[in-house]
Write a protein that binds this DNA or RNA. Structure first.
Lengths: 333, 333
DNA sequence: TTGAAAGCGCTAACAT
DNA sequence: ATGTTAGCGCTTTCAA
């Protein structure tokens, strides 16, 4: 039988109210004699307060839901870590949910989380979510969207990254290094970041008086498999190109592999630029030139914003845009 | 004001007991007329049951704590994903905790999780934990240790991997390929898997009548930084060697980088073998020969075992040992 | 087939 | 400085 606050109260010969105050450090008005007595009994009997019972009254669980597509995708662990660090620092816990970009899985997680009374949700929504689902509409706790915003979702905090600007800077740099036929192996266009990066690519081309050729823009997914397959396709079709701007680093890794297998030298024959700056970007033979995204910061900031809203009970509807940074390494000449 | 079971009961003109039964599908004895009526009202008013209140009574939260050193370390995302998949399939949630191998952080998470009334814990304990802490001793919920067991922790389920056998197989293979001077750049010896892998290394050497030279065994940490630094050290010291058996893939990646920077060709000059088979092992130029660990499976199995114990209220104290597999790729001749 | 009522462990307002 | 008490939202006997 687990020991409860009542047991402690009885053992210490005080009321449960007194014990409660001591357990929660609201003991300004408690004499140090009783405080010590109660504390030692708590210690002795190894009392563990039931926070679920507290939650019933305080209406706070100090839990935050984190919904991401897949923790096994190298983009998300750092984000999750950032969120968890900030959460932990403030006495919150993170409930991890992998949605696999599946809309119905997302919705069912959202419902689960609400039933578990989480205080708020950090959400990297599916690239495929075009509008607000019923579940999302009915949501009555604060939600922060990270990386991918949800159009039509009213009043929520958004954390984004300068995708367009980052891509613009990267492609401009490629052009400045003499690359002229730049293939864009993009992510899925259902995702806002993908769209924004494409915009940046086009903008850089236009500003430098290069033609934008649709044959050079190929949409795929954010995986190295797609990068590999994509570049192989391009080579087979004998498309003339001197460089590849990739939707993310995973794609770039696949591209590098495909290029290598075809005897193409990077950066001599072909230049390659990624996006994200995942950990592996520096561990490969020819270190990847890429656009760094502040992954950890995104998670950290998201949790910070959310906790702020929670503690101040003051919900803001605002957009935070974090900077990217071009990291020049070895895959561009 | 949030809507409660009482509101629904009043609106449907039934008792809360009836609503409760319907919400939880214990409605064999409810007439379909009432069932339909109640369900439509629940729908209409968008009622979300408060599972925390249920938990008070049922003594089950359907939450599982997952304590790992660091989700940003490539070894853990897959493990976490495996655990979350199995949990989700059974209606459980995962609370993610990053301990940074910090004993006091581990303990404080364990306490937090107990206060939140999680049903059980999946725990990859710090490599530095030599014996059972007070917190761990007082634990009164089931705990499954994964990868690293805790000596002295009584009656808990353990999931491990054949580290010794895997290392033995790998090093034996290296020897069969003609490598004779095999450096072992190991992980920290405070970690059981490290110790076991070292044992396997030694065993293979001995069985093949090669001398075991302490100069060739260097203990470090499970990071690529250490692998890089370690190999640089070895080269500087002009130690004669023809191959490196690494404590894990991260170390191997660092080794590969150091070798490359010193103009050493892999596998012609030097052979390299890792351990884990992380995703990146195939994405690098010279794909890494390594020992595959069933990361996802470990998490999946851990959650499965835990949930089984929870549902059957029958706690087992048993060891599950999963197989490793030597994956021969390009870093060995 | 349905409902009344006790109570899970705790907090917070209010009283003393 | 401490205690009394109502009640958070729900489940679960037990009775009707």
């Amino acid at each position: 039988m687990k020991i409860t606050i009542k047991d402690i109260a009885k053992l210490a010969d005080v009321s449960t109210a007194t014990v409660s105050k001591i357990v929660n450090n609201k003991d300004q008005s408690i004499s140090s004699a009783t405080r010590e007595k109660v504390k030692s009994i708590i210690e002795e009997y190894n009392y563990v307060p039931n926070r679920i019972a507290s939650s019933m009254i305080t209406k706070k669980t100090n839990s935050i839901g984190l919904i991401i597509p897949d923790i096994a995708n190298p983009f998300f662990p750092e984000l999750a870590r950032g969120a968890e660090d900030m959460a932990n620092k403030n006495g919150y816990n993170i409930i991890l949910c992998n949605s696999d970009n599946d809309l119905s899985k997302e919705d069912s997680y959202i419902e689960m989380l609400q039933e578990k009374m989480v205080d708020g949700i950090i959400f990297t929504s599916s690239s495929r979510r075009s509008s607000v689902s019923n579940t999302l509409k009915k949501l009555h706790i604060p939600i922060i969207t990270v990386d991918r915003e949800i159009e039509d979702l009213k009043s929520n905090c958004r954390i984004k990254v300068k995708n367009r600007e980052g891509a613009f800077e990267a492609v401009s740099y490629m052009i400045s290094r003499g690359y002229k036929k730049i293939v864009n192996l993009a992510g899925p266009m259902t995702s806002k970041p993908s769209k924004d990066r494409l915009e940046g690519y086009i903008e850089a081309l236009v500003k430098n008086n290069l033609v934008v050729d649709e044959k050079y823009i190929i949409e795929g997914s954010f995986t190295s498999e797609w990068g590999y397959k994509g570049i192989l396709d391009i080579i087979r079709k004998k498309l003339e190109f001197d460089s590849v701007f990739c939707g993310n680093d995973l794609i770039a890794l696949g591209v590098l592999k495909g290029l290598r297998e075809n005897g193409l030298n990077v950066p001599k024959d072909i230049g390659v630029v990624g996006f994200d700056d995942i950990y592996m970007a520096t561990m490969i033979d020819t270190e990847l030139t890429t656009v760094r995204q502040p992954n950890y910061q995104m998670g950290y900031k998201a949790a910070q914003l959310l906790i702020n809203m929670l503690e101040n009970k003051h919900y803001i509807d605002k957009e935070y845009i974090l900077d990217t940074k071009l990291i020049i390494r070895k895959t561009t000449r």
